[in-house]
Design a protein around this nucleic acid. Structure first.
Length: 181
DNA sequence: CGGTTTTGACCCGCGC
DNA sequence: GCGCGGGTCAAAACCG
């Protein structure tokens, strides 16, 4: 009862889910023409490094506060005058049968929550790399089970570990999308 | 065995 | 103030 992905039929072991959705490629005659598009960035755009640091500080502070005692004192989370910076998050919509979109990085799943108005849960992943706190969340639309929304949060400061197909090329295409936004 | 997934509890911001 | 929705933690299970 844990594998909702079992509800979907198996698909060929090829990673054509991405390459087959770019404008220069063939797009299946569907209502959704915007496969693998950039949904946009949420939050204010500030210094990325500063954003990440603040976020990490907040996260660690909260964690420390809770680890200290079960909600006894919440002083630890009170950092100095840190403005509430919200890290930009970039969402990608991809038509795929699988949830795990291997982009070449190593991810460790750290959570899964049910989403309101959506019968499919959302999975939270974190990049397994020291110092790299890039997070991403994958969620599937209940309306179109073939659509997977992947939201990236943060930037990788290390090379890709796996020799993934040619995701860099795909990434460059995505950046074209972002710049044209 | 070590790293990853699972899963329930917990925290927090926000709207009512 | 409280409940809800979303995000994270961490212990145990799982898997190569």
């Amino acid at each position: 009862m844990e594998n909702y992905s079992m509800l979907f039929p198996p698909q060929p072991p090829s990673y054509s889910y991405l390459t087959s959705h770019f404008p220069h490629q063939h797009i299946p005659a569907n209502n959704m023409v915007h496969d693998t598009r950039v949904l946009g960035s949420a939050g204010v755009l500030q210094g990325e490094s500063n954003v990440g640091a603040a976020a990490e500080a907040r996260d660690q502070a909260s964690k420390a506060a809770r680890m200290e005692e079960g909600g006894a004192e919440s002083e630890a989370k009170r950092r100095k005058g840190e403005k509430k910076v919200r890290k930009p998050r970039y969402a990608f919509q991809t038509r795929s049968q699988v949830d795990i979109l291997d982009d070449g990085y190593r991810w460790r799943k750290y959570g899964q929550k049910a989403v309101k108005n959506n019968k499919f849960p959302r999975s939270y992943y974190r990049c397994t790399h020291q110092g790299c706190n890039v997070k991403k969340q994958v969620q599937r639309l209940s309306k179109d089970e073939g659509i997977v929304v992947t939201t990236y949060e943060g930037m990788h400061t290390h090379p890709i570990e796996k020799a993934s197909d040619n995701f860099e090329h795909i990434l460059s295409q995505m950046q074209i999308y972002t710049t044209s936004f």
